[in-house]
Write a protein that binds this DNA or RNA. Structure first.
Length: 586
DNA sequence: GTGGGCTATAAGC
DNA sequence: TTCTGACTGATTCGG
DNA sequence: CCGAATCAGTCAGAAGCTTATAGCCCAC
């Protein structure tokens, strides 16, 4: 298939938001694709080169070129200054449009495009992705520039977007599955395709199976030790009453704030997968060791949360410290300073039996039978109840002890791989926060929006707290989540009236927004947590470490009743930070 | 040649 | 991680 | 009874902070 044909479908997909139309466009595309290229087409549509769990030897699953390098490639192929390309990009909010714009500008100076095939484009980009070592950045940029030069402007638009991992077509994995079903002339086939996908986490692979061995082949796909199962996800509710009303009798687990890990113990080998199916086995050798120790002769797939803890106090560490274990180098040293616990909450497979269709209670009993006392692997704490009072008590105690909240699981519910539904429901401490817990932040600048936010000319605001001691505004977060489109438009107009060319003298910020704004408008914001930050200036110590917000979002709109000096103060932020509880010992 | 600082990217939540 | 917006499919409402 | 209105659920794509890593650059 010609790459241009793929691009033509992309253009049509982008022109509609109707899902039924997208299914039809995609299924036509799939119909025209050969068995040797369908997987590539699907990986490309998802912004990837291959599934994330493929062995490192097969090459990276993402290109490793995002906006800055792409801008340099665009500028290079058009023979202009990257600064100019950057300005244009900021205005358009889409790296692809920038690429296309400059390709069109210089179209008459280039040779006619060769008409590359999908496979040729894929292979070229795959080679670029694999470049590494000294001089590789420049090589990548050059090679990308050459690719832009060899295709038509519209193709360079989608190549740029693909390489940046932001195709923005409205096509996710669910849409691909639906379209594959439609290609087989019945949307009902989606169930089988979806099951195969959730069991193997390889969308292109499912299509390969479909094209090679038909629906029968797809129906035969099941759990496979060594291939990550897409993790089940939680819905959210904001009170114990709602949870009981919705779920009835359920198991209630502590929600640990660490890394979601799916551990596969095969005949010989152990493999650990992240929430997004990355292979992270080398990060957690103690988990792998424990698995071979506990299950020398078993094949088993477990799921749980890995957290670091302090060996002297026994206290579990906050997420930011557990993050230290997300590393490839010096794992041995990190292991000593940041030892791990793996809190297991599910068993998906054991010695030939796929337990995902069984109810939670059954899986739980298998889990309890299998996991003995162990210093590394522990079964997550859980209670069983159909009573809102009891659930609320367990939640309160968990929060008291410093945990994130709880997850309620319907006792009879199967493990719904890859799906967010009300089989599992989380209740986090942050969902229950009273309005008084929100902060009033002063806007001191804003950034242009990207993608669908580009049309508003604003995507995020730089927000500050007030420091009465020095009469200064100090940044604590950028915030873009929580604005409606209407609010964004109004906000832009308001802020532009107060835009200033330079950083206002009474604003402290290490970050330079696209537009500085005189501190006047106050918004209320919510956050899950306050963290120490080397990027924000609020409460910064001698080392320049200040405070920032975890998961910041806007609540409501501009506070008409508050002026800049009514903003939350630095001291209040520090108090909120101190009030956060240390996590329980284990 | 080495090391530190800087920039860009990816990935965890 | 949180949030908004568009669409879909099912259910309820009202003449 | 049928079309209109409503509602809940699904899906995708905006947005955040933090850490680790890779490669580049420059001073020593």
């Amino acid at each position: 298939m010609q790459f241009l044909m793929l691009v033509t479908t992309f253009v049509a997909l982008e022109a509609t938001t109707k899902r039924l139309e997208m299914f039809s466009l995609l299924s036509d595309l799939f119909q025209a694709a050969g068995a040797d290229e369908i997987d590539k087409i699907i990986y490309i549509s998802q912004g990837h080169l291959r599934p994330p769990f493929y062995p490192l030897t097969s090459g990276p699953h993402v290109v490793g070129m995002s906006e800055k390098y792409l801008l340099r490639a665009i500028a290079k192929s058009a023979g202009l200054d990257p600064k100019e390309a950057e300005r244009r990009y900021r205005e358009m909010g889409d790296i692809g449009s920038a690429a296309k714009y400059y390709a069109e500008l210089t179209a008459d100076t280039r040779p006619a495009p060769d008409g590359l095939s999908v496979t040729e484009v894929y292979d070229t980009i795959d080679k670029i992705a694999a470049l590494h070592g000294e001089g590789s950045v420049e090589e990548k940029i050059d090679a990308t520039g050459r690719l832009f030069g060899a295709v038509s402007p519209i193709e360079s638009q989608y190549i740029a977007r693909f390489m940046a991992g932001k195709l923005r077509l409205g096509v996710g994995d669910a849409t691909v599955l639906e379209a594959l079903a439609l290609k087989m002339e019945d949307r009902a086939h989606r169930a089988a395709l979806e099951r195969a996908y959730h069991m193997t986490s390889d969308l292109g692979g499912v299509a390969r199976t479909l094209y090679g061995r038909g629906l029968v082949g797809v129906q035969g796909v099941g759990v496979c030790v060594g291939l990550p199962i897409r993790p089940a996800l939680c819905e959210r509710l904001s009170s114990a009453e709602e949870i009981i009303e919705k779920m009835g009798l359920c198991a209630v687990e502590i929600k640990y704030d660490g890394f979601r890990c799916q551990v596969h113990k095969g005949k010989e080998e152990v493999a650990i997968f992240s929430r997004n199916q990355e292979r992270i086995t080398p990060m957690f050798p103690e988990i792998a060791d424990a698995m071979t120790r506990l299950f020398p002769n078993d094949e088993i797939i477990l799921e749980g949360e890995a957290l670091s803890f302090d060996e002297t106090t026994g206290a579990l560490r906050p997420f930011q410290e557990t993050l230290q274990r997300k590393r490839k180098h010096d794992v041995t040293a990190a292991k000593a300073s940041y030892p791990l616990k793996y809190f297991v909450f599910d068993c998906l497979y054991l010695n030939g039996t796929d337990y995902t269709p069984y109810g939670y209670a059954k899986r739980r009993s298998v889990l309890l039978k299998q996991i003995p006392q162990d210093p590394v692997i522990e079964v997550a704490e859980v209670i069983e109840t159909d009573n809102a009072r009891a659930l609320a008590d367990f939640f309160d105690r968990s929060v008291e002890r410093g945990f994130e909240g709880i997850v309620a699981k319907k006792l009879g519910g199967p493990y719904t791989a890859g799906v967010r539904n009300f089989n599992w429901v989380k209740l986090k401490r942050s969902y229950r926060s009273a309005p008084s817990d929100s902060m009033d932040l002063c806007i001191v600048g804003y950034d242009a929006g990207r993608g669908s936010r580009a049309v508003f000319g604003i995507g995020t605001v730089l927000a500050a707290v007030y420091d009465p001691a020095g009469d200064r505004f100090k940044t604590v977060s950028k915030i873009g989540t929580g604005f409606s489109e209407d609010e964004l438009a109004r906000l832009k107009a308001l802020l532009d009236a107060d835009a200033v060319a330079e950083r206002p003298a009474h604003v402290d910020s290490t970050y330079t927004p696209h537009v500085w704004v005189y501190p006047r408008y106050v918004i209320s914001a919510l956050a899950d947590e306050i963290t120490r930050s080397s990027h924000h200036t609020a409460g910064a110590d001698a080392q320049g470490i200040g405070y920032a917000l975890r998961f910041p979002r806007v609540r409501g709109f501009i506070r008409e009743d508050k002026g800049a000096y009514d903003a939350t103060t630095v001291d209040e932020i520090v108090t909120l930070y101190r009030r956060q509880r240390k996590i329980d010992t284990v």
